[in-house]
Design a protein around this nucleic acid. Structure first.
Lengths: 356, 356
DNA sequence: TATTAGCACTCCTCACCTCAGAGTGCCAAC
DNA sequence: GTTGGCACTCTGAGGTGAGGAGTGCTAATA
């Protein structure tokens, strides 16, 4: 697994003892949710240091911006920068054992009727296993392979276009036509498209058909005119698709860190709005591994107090989408990161298997 | 409009003065959210009574279970029973003016690709206008009219069934077949089904085909065998459909009445679970008008502190589904009720218009 | 020079108190 | 039946003080 830092920032060298203390403090804070004091560290961190010494170290770490004290006498808490350093250099991830992986695999590899359904089930899985909010971005339509296209006349000026993609996914679109078409005409257009473009991805189809032929439209024969009118609306980028699927938002209401109702409301609205989060996920598409945003690193104001862990998933060597979780900054990264990572891999496997 | 009481209960006769005071108290409480005291009523209710008199009346109303006092010195608050009486006999609903109706109509009558999309947009509308959570139950598949059915071979043992319903709605299902079928065979089966059952509702189709023919299966010719295998899976009740669509849940986080995070979590989980709410809405399908559940009248524990206002909508004389809102018990019924009522009517109109 | 014990200090939390304000119930008078 | 008056109750805001946790600093120590 490769964890890349979206916002690399220089970290001054810390000696081993300091790192150990920081690591212990972050872990303890993640476990208990309470500010950690020097006495606790002196006693439990296993370094045989007096609390006074620990205090000196903590003061240094606060100076460097890794820790902060909620108030004078309250111990220390990691800052976003502290979490960042923790994740990048201190964290040892616990790999899932094969039994857990098998459970995940079985839950993902269930027969589904559509990509949306699969995405829903995977985000359910993510949220169930991590007790956080799970998110799965749907594969971009543009990257899907065209298996088959059919046209069905519905009424005088309406034709139903049916796209079978990736051998599993079916999409419909109702097309408004300029003139009536009969079934035979539509059949011929579909045959042509299937013969010419079956097996290619939508992006290519669109490019070839529209960009290359549009100019010569006036010189096309009747068949190709039909093909063009159908294709134009059929292969346009779909504004309909749901972009991503969220599950388990309610989990986020359990964490004291996010108990501010107003903040929570804004967060939930961001889930519905989608645009901000989509932008964030787009950045992760080509990260090539697990990516983590701590707090406001994402540049998204509503994500204050939250962290996002994402991983792209793909079929073959192509990136199809991104999945991940959103939870309080104070989350069990050592567990969540492998879950996200493995889920992405398993989803890729399943999608590969479906390409029959 | 007809507002029916789902749980009629005897209400003793109240004299006019008492009713007036109760009405004023409920309205004031809905407006301000504060317990209403005798002084306020004496001063503002326009009855020229001393607070002592009002206190006597309030004591009676408390005795009858219409009011309760949060504590000794805090004025009174309506109980569920109080709201019930208010809604049934005291409430004067403010009809929407034609301008408002026009705005609603335009927002509903937008071109949509599918029933789900339409439902989503209507529940968005409901939640936007009322600032509560809007819910639209999707039309039961069983009640839809079959326009057209087509079968598309996908691979050896997989056939894509495409159902065009109500002239607007398209549904797909992938069917696993026992033996391979070629395109011509499937075409004949589709032709048969379209000829025999086009224009009938799914319920009928299913009944006729499955119940009547299943027994005689062994004596059917090859065409009918094909028809049967296709139809069995195509017309089975769909477990896939999303049942209902919720919008604007986040609005509910703004109301102090529901500010208990844990309660709120349970409520949101009920939205996702769906089964409880579906059961509730099913009851409203044949109510023939606006129906209101106050607090736990619905029999649904998580709805404590909430009211539900629903109205069935239909096309022609057939009930297709239910829509409504969920909000805090303390909501502006005089405004919400007509909004729900009119929205249901407008949705029916639009659906009627689409039956081309 | 790094570590430590000791100590004064800060700040939070909690329990407790008080007090004003709002509202009630009841009673006697009208 | 209605009303004024009065004692009573309860809440909520504000204040106080003890206890505890944790810090920073300093001087002593290894």
């Amino acid at each position: 697994m490769q964890i890349s830092d979206p916002t690399p920032a220089g970290h001054p060298a810390l000696n081993e003892r300091t790192q150990h203390l920081l690591k212990f403090l972050v872990e303890r804070y993640i476990r208990d949710g309470q500010p950690v004091g020097s006495r606790t560290l002196s006693r439990d961190a296993g370094l045989d240091l007096s609390s006074a010494t620990v205090r000196n170290v903590m003061a240094d770490l606060e100076e460097l911006g890794y820790l902060r004290a909620p108030h004078t006498s309250a111990g220390r808490v990691p800052t976003a920068r502290g979490y960042r350093f923790f994740i990048d250099t201190l964290l040892r991830v616990k790999p899932l054992d094969s039994r857990e992986i098998e459970v995940l695999r079985r839950r993902i590899d269930q027969p589904t009727q559509s990509g949306t359904e699969l995405a829903r089930s995977v985000s359910d899985l993510l949220s169930g296993v991590t007790r956080l909010a799970g998110i799965v971005m749907l594969p971009r339509r543009q990257t899907m392979t065209l298996r088959q296209v059919e046209f069905l006349p519905l009424s005088e000026h309406r034709v139903l276009a049916i796209l079978v993609l990736n051998g599993q996914e079916v999409q419909n679109r109702i097309i408004q036509t300029r003139r009536p078409y009969d079934a035979a005409e539509l059949q011929r257009a579909a045959n042509y498209l299937n013969a010419q473009f079956g097996g290619r991805d939508i992006q290519q189809v669109r490019k070839t058909l529209l960009d290359e032929l549009r100019e010569t439209r006036d010189h096309l024969d009747r068949l190709m005119q039909t093909v063009m009118e159908m294709a134009e609306q059929t292969f346009e980028t779909a504004p309909e698709s749901d972009d991503y699927v969220v599950a388990g938002q309610t989990h986020l209401m359990q964490y004291a860190d996010l108990s501010d109702l107003d903040k929570l409301r804004q967060l939930f609205e961001a889930f519905n709005q989608k645009s901000d989060l989509l932008h964030l996920f787009d950045q992760c598409l080509h990260a090539g591994g697990v990516q983590i945003f701590v707090g406001e690193e994402s540049g998204c104001g509503v994500l204050e107090g939250c962290s996002v862990v994402t991983a792209p998933y793909g079929s073959g060597d192509q990136v199809l989408g991104v999945l991940g979780i959103i939870g309080p900054t104070r989350m069990a990264y050592d567990r969540v990161i492998p879950v996200v990572d493995v889920t992405a891999r398993l989803l890729a496997e399943v999608l590969d298997g479906q390409r029959d």
